[in-house]
Amino acid sequence: MKIAIASGKGGTGKTTVSVNLAAYMSSKYKIILTDLDVEEPNSSLFIDKENYDKTIISRMVPHWNKSTCISCGKCNEVCNFNAVIQIEALNEVVVFPKLCHSCFACSDLCPTLSLPMGRERVGLINHYYHKKFDLIEGVLDIGQEQAVPLIAQTIAYTDKHYSDDYIKIFDSPPGTSCPVIEAVKDSDLVLLVTEPTPFGLNDLKISVEVMRKLNQKFGVIVNRAESHLNLINDYCQIENIPLITELPQSRKIAELYSQGKLIYRAVSQVENEFEKISQFIEKVRSGK
């Protein structure tokens, strides 16, 4: 089963929920935690790491072969992303790997096969082995702008190494555009983490629209909940969205987080809240 932890707004507690949920559920289930927030991966900061494997991840981009090029301009014509530019005056073709979407059109359609596809490094996958559960994280190289290919490969890596009887928890990137969609689209359940502020509500509403468009099953977790702030509860009730649990606003929790520590054991009330999430997942899993 695949569970994506997501939120429109950044900093609502996706990583807190992901790492604590993985740790909490690992006493009963086989768990793998995967960090898909490849631009700013943080899950591994909260896990005692022992040894790990490192895999360099690349994607395919065209490389121009001047000696066979006949300057027909086909590549320039077929590229929709301005990533392959023919400079006629110089008899040159220039490839901009950062703009390339790896569609292979220029390479396949070049009549003299002068743009063979080759690897370009985009980042790393770190695979940490941990006593109770393992952690996989995608890390985008600084200077790389496209997160989606690395997210896709990090999910594929997880599926290759862990069978379907694992509960796979995916700590997803923030926002509502391409990286999030890539991270959540194949999951069985999405947990949307939000906070009871106008910002949190606004971004939750957008996330809900996205989940509905993607036909995803989802529920909401309120973080930094305070008894007098009901705007998320009201919204979920009107929209008939399951509100799974509320994690309290607490200086203690914020301090533990700042030190890279787990919260569910240290703060008594919180363990119950993670039990609620676990039960919700179990219900979805058993199809009840």
Binding site: E39, E40, L140, E145, A147, P173
Partner: peptide, 10 residues
């Protein structure tokens, strides 16, 4: 600006 280090930030 936007969070992250990818294309919206750049």
């Amino acid at each position: 600006g936007s969070p992250g280090i990818g294309c919206p930030v750049v």
